[in-house]
């Protein structure tokens, strides 16, 4: 049993940590509910007093969504639809392809599998900035610029980190289970779809949540590959609150819009939380 002091200390640390992490979020909430002037003042002067909204301007939220992009409402709805399409495709693509490749590395014996696995792991060491320009040139030559393809297609070729995670997990599934499936008339694809995928649900939950959050919030790739306004995703559309010199004129609306775009990520995390946390701590499959 821990002593009372020890417990108090642990709680104090946890509370301090929570406050530190929640502070920016609360600041966003506070600013999003202020009038334009108060918000401007708060961003310039700061101060504890400005953290408590005295006269909450709830209409900032619909206003923000309405004013996003160049056309009223349409900008937001377009961006929302774009984000949803890109994110769902990228998430599904990453989970499906990573588990398929992970199964191949874990279960299939083929010449060169080890070197190939090492090369794949090696790609994790490569910073994204290094491949940015070659990738842009590649996609331009393919005629994919200003389409969703550069954001979606690469997802269907797996992600090194998730492949690694799937491989480790699948390697622990008893071999006899796959053999039973082979005797039951399954080919490799059937084994993957009907046995491996259902058994790797925790890894799929992690892959889905991480990929969803990353793709939903990704700013750089949509900014590089999408050029027309009606193709913009939410993260790019938020940029319309900046003026041409890079300054932010309506900071309260930017915060309101930013908070709104966070909602799907939070909901998804809450929904997948059980699977997700189980997956983080779980290394074995019950045989």
């Amino acid at each position: 049993m821990r002593s009372r002091t020890e417990k108090t200390l642990i709680y104090a640390l946890l509370i301090a940590g929570t406050v530190t992490f929640l502070f920016p979020l609360w600041w966003m909430v506070a600013v999003s509910l202020k009038t334009p002037e108060a918000a401007q003042a708060a961003t310039v002067r700061g101060g504890i007093a400005s953290l408590v909204p005295t006269d909450p301007q709830w209409h900032n939220y619909p206003d923000a969504l309405m004013q996003m992009g160049s056309v009223r409402w349409t900008g937001f709805l377009d961006a929302l639809a774009n984000s949803v399409v890109v994110t769902i495709l990228a998430t599904a693509g990453t989970a499906l392809s990573s588990s398929l490749v992970g199964m191949a590395f874990a279960r299939m014996r083929f010449r060169g599998s080890r070197p190939m696995f090492l090369v794949m792991l090696g790609t994790m060491m490569l910073p994204a900035q290094v491949t940015m320009i070659p990738l842009f040139i590649l996609f331009r030559n393919l005629g994919w610029i200003d389409t969703f393809l550069p954001l979606v297609v690469p997802a269907f070729f797996g992600n090194a980190f998730f492949i690694f995670m799937y491989r480790q997990f699948i390697a622990q599934i008893p071999e006899a289970l796959l053999e039973a499936a082979r005797l039951d008339g399954q080919g490799w694809f059937g084994i993957w779809w009907r046995v491996i995928l259902p058994l790797t649900r925790p890894v799929t939950a992690i892959t889905a949540v991480f990929t969803f959050i990353f793709t939903w919030n990704d700013f750089l790739a949509p900014l590089i590959y999408l050029q027309s306004d009606d193709q913009a995703t939410l993260s790019v559309a938020l940029n319309s609150f900046r003026n041409q010199y890079g300054g932010i004129t309506k900071v309260n609306l930017l915060m309101a819009a930013s908070l709104t775009t966070m909602v799907p990520c939070i909901l998804l995390f809450l929904a997948a939380q059980k699977q997700f946390i189980e997956g983080l701590g779980k290394g074995a499959v019950k045989g």
């Binding site: 008893p174 006899a176 053999e179 039973a180 082979r182 005797l183 080919g187 259902p198 045989g287």
Partner: peptide
Amino acid sequence: LPPKDRDVAMVFQNYALYPH
């Protein structure tokens, strides 16, 4: 012939029931 076309069924030591 692959296992599925041999018309055999097997009972494994660790049962190998699909857990899901």
